[in-house]
């Protein structure tokens, strides 16, 4: 066999070029992402202080903290999870246990995936029409509900996926012992998929803790401490949005501090969720 030297050379050249390009892409991509994390750490850490957690958002030009925003974020996220988790859990259970191949399940699954990756600002508009307009005012309830609308699809998806991982023999064994289906689901399937379901809830919390768009015209934001659910309430992403767009140096610092808090929360939750998911899959 005669080796075609020219062809061989061309192929090797193309190969080296390809390796260089994808290496370049990887470096390029990771470079940007690490630049963002670096800027976040640099500006965020210098903004961290005790007053960040003990004082409320200041007027322009004064010092202050993010207490009301942290409080608002926690309250609204908690509310959203409390509303969204049961709905998502049951809907996911329906998809995985009752109607796995049914037509309704097919439609629900499709719609759920659209809601999952659809634009979150539209959720805000929806809740505005549904809650804010009839109530004649922005409120923390509206903010909570719009976050709940984001929680539901996340929980539905992970619940369904995790329930599908539970081996059928478990369900059959329980049914053969005479357990009604609901009992099988509650005592066997849910229990077997517990870690996975909790993963879904954690991911949902991670998702909503940084959501800004759906809160803009539901919770609106509030620069004083408010615990009234029927009044506008502050939230970390809203404060970042407001303060970053301003012209005051102090506000910028607070925005960076808030950004670091959010990112730390999201990354922390994702890591815990990932660890839990690994225990589920093995």
């Amino acid at each position: 066999m005669v080796l075609n030297q020219a062809l061989y050379f061309r192929r090797r050249l193309a190969n080296s070029l390809f390796i260089a390009l994808s290496l370049g892409a990887a470096i390029f991509g990771l470079l940007w992402l690490s630049l963002i994390l670096y800027a976040l750490l640099k500006n965020g850490v210098s903004a961290l202080s005790v007053s960040l957690f003990t004082e409320i958002t200041p007027p322009p030009g004064a010092k202050g903290g993010l207490l009301n925003a942290i409080f608002g974020s926690v309250v609204m996220s908690l509310g959203a999870v409390l509303i969204g988790t049961p709905v998502g859990l049951f809907a996911g259970t329906y998809l995985a246990e009752y109607a796995r191949h049914g037509r309704l399940a097919l439609v629900v699954r499709f719609v759920n995936d659209i809601l999952l990756s659809g634009p979150s600002i539209v959720t805000g508009l929806f809740i505005y029409e549904l809650v804010v307009r009839p109530m004649h005012g922005f409120s923390a309830i509206a903010g909570t509900l719009s976050l709940a609308v984001i929680v539901i699809p996340v929980v539905v998806r992970t619940t369904e996926n995790m329930l599908l991982l539970v081996p059928n023999s478990l369900r059959e064994a329980a049914s053969a012992l005479g357990a009604p289906q609901s009992f099988v689901i509650r005592a066997v399937t849910w229990k077997a998929a517990r870690a996975g379901i909790i993963t879904g809830v954690l991911l949902a919390i991670a998702r909503i803790s940084g959501e800004t768009a759906p809160l803009l015209f539901t919770a609106l934001g509030n620069n004083s401490m408010s615990t009234d659910m029927t009044k506008p309430m502050a939230a970390l992403p809203l404060v970042i949005n407001q303060f970053a767009a301003s012209a005051f140096e102090d506000w910028h610092t607070l925005a960076w501090g808030g950004a670091l808090l959010i990112t730390a929360t999201v990354l922390g939750l994702s890591i815990v969720a990932r660890l839990l998911e690994n225990t589920q899959r093995t």
């Binding site: 859990l89 329906y94 289906q181």
Partner: peptide, 20 residues
């Protein structure tokens, strides 16, 4: 109880559709 559970989960699934 079985029927209630089934209905609850079906209602939750329908709620997803209703949201959409």
């Amino acid at each position: 109880g079985d029927a209630r559970f089934r209905l609850t989960s079906q209602a939750a699934a329908l709620l997803v559709l209703a949201i959409f």
